[in-house]
Every structure is written in C-alpha cells, then in structure tokens.
Design a protein around this nucleic acid. Structure first.
Length: 278
DNA sequence: ATCAGCACCTGTTGGC
DNA sequence: TGCCAACAGGTGCTGA
C-alpha cells in the first residue's frame, strides 16, 4: 500500500516520463474514480503537464494553465506510463497528444482522481510533511499535546503529519521504542524527538530502497520496491525482534493491524497492558 | 471539537 | 482438494 516512500518513488519516476507532455483526452473507464468534490475530467483535455510532485500521499500534477490534478492511490492504485496493452483494473487513462498514455489501474477501486483550480494544499487538506524543515521536536510535541488517541492512530491521521501509513507508523514506533497504544498526549519532549528522528530515518531508508512492495505496489516503471526485506515489525507477528529476539506481537488499533516488540517498545500505553495478540 | 465505527472494494488467505 | 467467509487497509462520512 503506497505511503510516503512509495508515492515519492512513483513521483520521481513519473517526472521525466510525463512532465511537458500534453493531454489530448481523458477516459474514465470507471467513472466513480473521479472525485465529485472536484471538477469534470474533460476540463484537462488540451492541458500540458508542467510539474509532478508529492503532497502527503497524493500525486499532484500541475498543468500549464495553473489548474491541478491530485491522484490518490489508496491501497492498490498504480500509475503506468505508455502501457502498450490494456491493463486489468484500468480506472482512467490520460491519452497524450504524442500517442502515449498514463494509465491508472486500481483493483480495489479506492483510488481517486481530483481536478481543481485552487491551491493544492488547501484542496487536499494534508498536514505538514515529515521532512519539512519547519517541523522540529518542539513542533511535533505541540501537535501531540492534549490528544487522547493512541500515538499510532495519530500518526495515521493525515491532518497532522502527512504521508505516514500503517507500515511506517509501526516501523517508526519500533525504532523510537514507543508502544503504539501509548496515549498521544503522554509522549514527552524526548519521545517526540525520538519519534521524529525515527520517522525521518525509516522514511529515508525506504525511499532509498524505492519503497516497500507489501501488496502489489510497483513504481512508475513497474518495478517493485526493496524495503519490505528490512521491515522490523510490520507483518512479522511471532517472528523474533531484530534487536532483542522477543516475539513480535500483533494487536488491532483503529481497525488496523499493529505490530510491535513487547520488549523494545515498553513505554506504557493506557493502563491495560494485556492486549490480545491475535 | 474529538473520536469510534462503519462503508467503500476485491484479491488473497485461512479454516473446515 | 475445494469452497467460502473473513480479512486486508486509507480515508470519508455518520453519529455519539
């Protein structure tokens, strides 16, 4: 499932392939892919792609006219450039004036295309990027303060810090030695600093490996990522912790599988320490 | 305001 | 071996 490192890898792959190209028309193979909060897809026919960038987990294309398209891949979305044959699960296609194409294929139909004229930051409403230099330990600590949800749930909420999903939330908390169930507001300044450093470290390493291919993630060139081999806790229930050999446990927080080491991540959560390891 | 819980989806997995 | 219910999960929405 694409999170920040996967989307970053996709964007880096897309830039040299589609920047500068002109869209002749848009085909909606599955019309509900178009986010109804945005504009009609016909509006970008004739547009030239000026720039592609990442905003949280969104792939954002800016057109020469100044309007934008934001694509969210959700769980299984893929963007493939210049597909030679029709791809299974195709939801929309941008036909370029030069005869090429950009195909969005998405088995589970969760991904969306949104077209809009305004400022992308205001349109997609994502919080600060983990790599934004304006975010420091004090700033993160201020965001944490007063919140009662589990820290893992906070990390998944895109309105605060953007781009982190289930895999990297688990991995960063393991690196920081913080239990996923710990109440957000209970993290002290030192833990906030460790968490921010852990987030940046794990996201950087994952980008270096071109992301994690856990489900069916592939980059713009159709290649898999390599970071899944280095995951410390995600998907490793019952396997030995890479640091202390204790068995990795799995709990459910906010309906999502959550993996942690009961020894390395001791910092107490809300009094109940007896979460089931299903 | 904040948060928990469900709906959206379908390919894959696990249990019988 | 084969069938089918349960599961996976990011986000938007609803209701408490």
């Amino acid at each position: 499932m694409p999170e920040l490192p996967e989307v970053e890898t996709i964007v880096r792959g897309l830039r040299p392939l589609i920047e500068g190209r002109r869209i002749a028309r848009v085909e909606l193979a599955w019309p509900r892919v178009l986010d109804p909060r945005g504009q009609a897809s016909e509006g970008i026919a004739g547009e030239q792609i000026a720039e592609v960038r990442r905003l949280g987990k969104f792939v954002v294309a800016r057109f020469a006219s100044g309007s934008h398209a934001a694509i969210h891949l959700r769980m299984t979305g893929r963007l493939i450039v210049d597909a030679k044959t029709p791809l299974p699960h195709t939801r929309f296609v941008w036909r370029f004036a030069d005869g090429g194409n950009l195909v969005f294929a998405d088995a589970r139909k969760f991904g969306r295309l949104r077209i809009f004229a305004g400022d992308p930051r205001e349109e997609v409403q994502v919080g600060i990027d983990p790599f934004d230099k304006r975010l420091d330990a004090d700033g993160l600590h201020a965001l944490l303060r007063g919140r009662r949800s589990a820290i893992k749930v906070f990390l998944l909420d895109q309105r605060f810090v953007s781009g982190i999903g289930n895999i990297y939330a688990c991995e960063a908390l393991w690196r920081a030695g913080i239990r996923p169930s710990k109440r957000t507001g209970r993290l002290n300044k030192r833990e906030a600093r460790k968490l921010l450093a852990a987030l940046r470290k794990v996201l950087t390493k994952a980008i270096d490996k071109r992301g994690s291919s856990v489900d069916d993630y592939v980059d713009a060139g159709g290649k898999q990522g390599g970071f899944q081999k280095q995951l410390a806790v995600y998907g490793r229930r019952g396997l030995p912790c890479r640091r202390c050999k204790a068995r990795i446990r799995r709990i459910v927080l906010a309906q999502r599988g959550t993996f942690f080491c009961p020894v390395c991540q001791r910092s107490s959560g809300p009094a109940n320490r007896s979460n089931r390891t299903t």
